[in-house]
Design a protein around this nucleic acid. Structure first.
Length: 303
DNA sequence: GGTAACAGAGCCAGCGTTCA
DNA sequence: TGAACGCTGGCTCTGTTACC
């Protein structure tokens, strides 16, 4: 049996605090969870649509913003991408997305509203919603929660358990019957939509990518922490290469040198990541990336 | 203070390399 | 040759920072 908004909030033992129309700010800055739905009535399960109202304009916009977007590994067109997204629509459900806000409901939902198609930030998830023609007619129900992550988990668990067998069978990926715009749940378990490259930063988006007036178009940048001194890091790596009589070093090994020297703290869960960020920004002298994507730093002649 | 953008966390898949 | 391992980029989400 399909889920109502109230049923999901009840599953997490939460009191629904209200609902606003899409694009209207939520009048609460507390942490919590929110549900995007086709209707304003939290008890209704009848406000549904038999198929997804995919907007060809939005699809065209997305394809323009993300020229490298692929479906099943191939460059997509409007028709194919529309069809693929529509294959995740649940015709008897009114709930389209369940999300959490760890700090502020108003800020997080505002971030969702403002994220442009094809962009990963500030709200990377739920972008299927932005492809709907009727997005302006949607409602955002919300509830304050002390444990937004736990609440969201219970709500999604309740939703998935309640999806009707018929609706599940009709999905392209019946193993993951999440709300239409939820692409991952629990963490790491994703819908098999086959769409790659649909979001990213402006630099990687190609000619159609948006650029705000806050960013200098000629100088795309990766933000470097204030306490990172790129020149010092570069010089230290070159000095170590000379001292060790080495012609090159991998990014991961160089990152370890820098960490030991206290010049750049390495990431514990992704070895070499902070240094790779500098390499991607092109800031390290002698840097080189092999065709297999691996980074090296060469000893340069001037040192 | 509000808005927009970026960085980091924690996971994954895919690919290349190493080694038994 | 195949398993194990290491590394990279991608994905989603949250928190932080920069700019107006």
């Amino acid at each position: 049996m399909p889920s109502s908004v109230r049923y999901l909030f009840d599953s997490a033992r939460l009191q629904r605090d209200g609902a606003v129309r899409w694009r209207e700010p939520i009048p609460s800055k507390a942490p919590g969870v929110y549900v995007v739905s086709l209707g304003s009535d939290p008890d209704s399960i009848s406000e549904t649509l038999s198929s997804a109202a995919i907007s060809p304009t939005a699809i065209t916009q997305l394809l323009g913003a993300r020229p490298k977007l692929t479906v099943d590994g191939s460059r997509s067109d409007v028709e194919l991408l529309s069809l693929r997204v529509a294959e995740f629509w649940l015709p008897d459900e009114s709930i389209l997305y369940v999300g959490l806000a760890g700090t502020s409901l108003r800020d997080r939902v505002q971030a969702y509203y403002s994220t442009k198609l094809g962009r990963r930030s500030p709200h990377a998830g739920g972008w299927f919603l932005k492809l709907l023609e009727n997005i302006e007619d949607l409602w955002v129900h919300y509830a304050v929660s002390d444990d937004p992550g736990g609440s969201e988990h219970k709500m999604l668990d309740a939703f998935v358990s309640a999806v009707s067998p018929a609706a599940k069978r009709a999905l392209r990926d019946p193993d993951h019957p999440f709300p239409f715009a939820n692409l991952e749940w629990p963490r790491g378990v994703r819908k098999q939509h086959g769409i790659r490259g649909a979001t990213g930063d402006a630099r990687s988006g190609g000619p159609g990518a948006t650029q705000t007036n806050q960013m200098k178009p000629s100088a795309p940048r990766r933000r470097i922490p204030r306490d990172v001194h790129v020149g010092q890091i570069s010089a230290y790596i070159q000095a170590e290469l000379r001292r060790r009589n080495r012609g090159e070093v991998t990014a991961v090994e160089a990152a370890r040198w820098l960490d030991e020297a206290g010049l750049l703290r390495d990431s514990q869960h992704r070895r070499g990541l902070p240094l790779r960020n500098l390499l991607r920004a092109g800031l390290i002298e002698g840097q080189r990336q092999e065709p297999n994507s691996r980074w090296f730093i060469d000893r340069v002649a001037t040192h």
